[in-house]
Write a protein that binds this DNA or RNA. Structure first.
Lengths: 100, 100
DNA sequence: ACGTTATATCGTAATATTACGATATAACGA
DNA sequence: TCGTTATATCGTAATATTACGATATAACGT
């Protein structure tokens, strides 16, 4: 039988919920491209208040989608769950090329 | 550059939001297995009130994830967007075997 | 036309998410 | 130690989602 139990569904739903926001998708896609990024850079890219960006990042972080590493004053974010790469490929229109 | 624009992110987020609920994931996975299903069957499986199941189905439907076909008194639901298959494979633990 | 079955929609209370300014924390350089 | 920079957290108002009983609709058999 081996049906996914309720817990599996809940866990998967949590992950999807964390990704299910245009700003967070944008952050994640940027991280997949750039591999690593600090908050102020994202903030400029997104053109959103710092606290807003930070809150989205915390949501991604507590879902295990990204992780952090401090480097002096900055916190560098990276992708922590490789599955999101495939999710993004599946869901966002492809790029012709990715620079850098 | 060809960056996905805001609209792409919003569209992808809508899709994820529609899937980001344990009950809806369960419905979708069931449909992937059984190919086709009516509402009362799902209702029994899920053991939830009819209106609750129906509302989840409407959410999946308006996201284009499932589609319907009437057959007499019943409405048969099927998966409309093949991408969800890969999403499910990616997110839910695999089954050893799928019967029928 | 009438009762029955299957499904959808409405109304709504409870809960969750979002955005964002204000404030806190942590690390740096002087 | 102090000021500054980078980031996180708090408080909260606005908005969205959820669950579910009640009610509506649509198709069937008689």
């Amino acid at each position: 039988m081996n049906e996914p139990d309720f817990k599996s569904y809940t866990a998967a739903a949590e992950m999807l919920k964390a990704l299910a926001h245009p700003v967070r998708l944008c952050i994640v896609r940027g991280l997949l491209q750039k591999k690593q990024c600090n908050v102020s850079y994202m903030q400029e890219c997104l053109n959103l208040p710092q606290s807003t960006v930070s809150q989205h990042l915390q949501k991604l972080r507590s879902a295990g989608i990204v992780e952090t590493e401090r480097s002096g004053l900055e916190i560098k974010y990276t992708i922590a769950d490789e599955r999101v790469k495939q999710l993004i490929v599946l869901l966002l229109p492809k790029e012709d090329a990715i620079y850098e």
